[in-house]
Computed example of a mutant assay.
Amino acid sequence: MTVIIGMDPHKRSATIEVIDHTGKIRAVGRYGTDKAGYTEMLTTGRKFGNRVWAVEGCNGIGRHIAHRLVHDGETVLDVPAKLSAQIRVFATGNGRKTDPVDAHSVAMAALHSPNLRRVEPDPDLLLLSMGTAPSSVDSRNQPNRGQSPSMESMRSLKRRLSNVVYARMLADQRQHEKASPGGHSGTTLQSSATGLTPHTDPSEKPLPGPATNKVNPAPAAAS
């Protein structure tokens, strides 16, 4: 028998409700989102053999905890907030929000909505998730003795950013090497800032001769 574990996630806590295929409540609980609380919640969920987690807002507040569950091998469905809100109105008659009511609404929405999106692993998010380290990370990124996983995750992120900057520097250097001696692509030694070097061929007209100090005599006066 498959059960649905509906979850109302918050930044520091998560409230869950477990229902079976008839909608009967099998378990409820509220847990912290720190490492201890998350481990306790996961242990509670794994008491049920066939299970599916339904998390509200996997693209928002529930994103991190949803991907932590996926990384740990759980099946997680994304329940849109609007859908669970509709169920809540039908269930309570007034739409009033409380954590247990929200968890129940999420679980019931998953029970009656067969086409919900399944959450797929996100390596970048898993790398930074609190208290976890993805198995796909190589040995250089594994936490060293005495270092917390979150600190090692930040170190790995810095290395990745450094690789991006280095690749950009190499691309700029190759572009510079392709440039001609003028310093920019497409320039030549015959080009100038404003265009081609002006043509300086000699003029076809002869230049006047050198100047002299000879004074021409004035014409004689008529007698």
Rank of each mutant, 00 (worst) to 15 (best):
D78K: 00
L116A: 04
E56L: 04
L69H: 02
S180W: 09
K24I: 07
S203L: 08
S148N: 11
S84M: 07
E74I: 09
L207W: 13
S150C: 11
L83R: 14
D138P: 01
V18Q: 00
P134Q: 04
K24R: 11
P121R: 10
L42R: 14
E120G: 05
A36K: 13
H104K: 13
A167I: 04
A133G: 08
R160F: 05
Y38T: 10
T197E: 03
R174D: 08
A27T: 05
D201E: 09
H104W: 08
S180R: 15
P134A: 05
A27V: 05
L157T: 04
S84Y: 04
E74W: 10
M1R: 10
P123F: 06
D8T: 03
P210V: 09
P123W: 07
N213S: 15
T33S: 03
R30P: 00
R155Q: 05
R140W: 10
D102K: 01
G37D: 02
S185N: 12
G131D: 07
T187R: 10
G32N: 11
P198F: 06
V28G: 01
S153L: 11
V18P: 00
L127Q: 08
I16P: 00
M108H: 03
N163S: 15
V119I: 07
K97G: 01
M108W: 01
N50H: 12
T15I: 08
M151P: 00
S129T: 14
P143E: 05
T2S: 03
G146D: 06
G195Y: 10
V215E: 01
S148K: 14
R12S: 11
T194P: 00
S13M: 15
I25L: 13
V165L: 13
N213H: 12
R140Q: 11
V165C: 09
A221Q: 14
L126C: 08
Q147Y: 06
G95I: 03
P121D: 00
M1G: 08
G37Q: 03
S135C: 12
R160S: 02
C58G: 01
S191D: 14
D34W: 09
H199A: 14
A54F: 05
A27L: 09
L111T: 02
E204H: 13
N144H: 07
V165R: 15
P121H: 03
I16K: 00
A218W: 12
M169K: 15
T75R: 06
A91Q: 09
S192R: 15
G131M: 07
G183Q: 07
T2L: 06
I25P: 04
A220V: 12
E152Q: 15
S113L: 01
M1E: 11
T132S: 06
E17Y: 00
D102Y: 06
L111A: 06
V18A: 01
V3H: 05
P100K: 01
T188G: 06
P149T: 10
G45W: 00
T200K: 10
C58R: 01
G37N: 03
D102F: 05
R68P: 00
N144D: 12
I5W: 01
A103F: 08
L111Y: 04
N115E: 07
Y31C: 02
